[in-house]
Design a binder for these strands. Structure first.
Lengths: 123, 123
DNA sequence: TTCATAATGATAACTCGTTATCATATTGTC
DNA sequence: GACAATATGATAACGAGTTATCATTATGAA
């Protein structure tokens, strides 16, 4: 049976509070403020079980290792800051891409990634 | 000075003929039809020099190792077949995503990836 | 409080894609 | 054709990210 530990609590809190897709390293650094000494293995283990139990999902961006965000959000896309590297959630979606698809192809889903500067990185 | 070899010729031909982003392994397999015995190291070396000389570009898709396509095409996006794994080029682009971006963020570029079945994979 | 057992942290080991190494083959200039 | 230099192919080595191992610690049911 799964036990409730300070480490897992801290990791869940961090994901809720920061509310953006986090890399395992970002999770580690943020959660160490709550649980000094937290190890990277525990972060990987916890993220894995959060995904398995359905309360987190992996966010894959081109050329990047997976980040993780809490599950259950409505359809959305992401913004990747080219300066600080943080990834943010976006609202809204153009919705229809069928005009881009050749005849005979069937689209099932789509991903959009915007790149640029976040507020903190415009100087 | 760079020499012209059967291997490099075959790799360039394959990229021109298939006209879609190819993984190093796809390049290897297709080019071996022209040059039996072609080695994977030569494929990596050639792709690297094609990118360095500006005649090819890397195409990064979420959670995937880089593929390569010939350079010089106009702005476009990609379709990733969820069955055969091939990536195809698409025409057209919604263009404006500024409505998705929070105040204070500045968008510099974007990527769109569509997922689904290509013609050959609809059964 | 006790105690069985799950969780942790340090780190070794692993995976996958890519690059380096090096003996051999090929190119192209003379 | 000869020869210097570049390219090739096999494969070892590498790097980043992730998982496995294992001795130790913490949890929670009784």
């Amino acid at each position: 049976m799964e036990r409730s530990t300070r480490q897992r609590q801290a990791i869940r809190e961090v994901m809720t509070e920061l509310n953006r897709p986090l890399s395992p390293i970002e999770v580690l650094e943020a959660a160490r403020a709550k649980v000094p000494g937290l190890g990277i293995a525990t972060v990987y283990r916890t993220l894995k079980s959060l995904v398995e139990e359905g309360s987190a999902v992996a966010v894959e961006l081109p050329g990047e290792a997976p980040r993780y965000e809490l599950a259950g959000k409505k359809h959305h896309h992401h913004f990747h800051c080219t300066r600080c590297g943080k990834v943010f959630e976006l609202e809204g979606c153009p919705g229809d891409f069928s005009f881009m698809v050749p005849k005979g192809f069937k689209t099932e889903k789509h991903e959009i990634v915007l790149y640029g500067r976040c507020t903190d990185c415009l100087h």
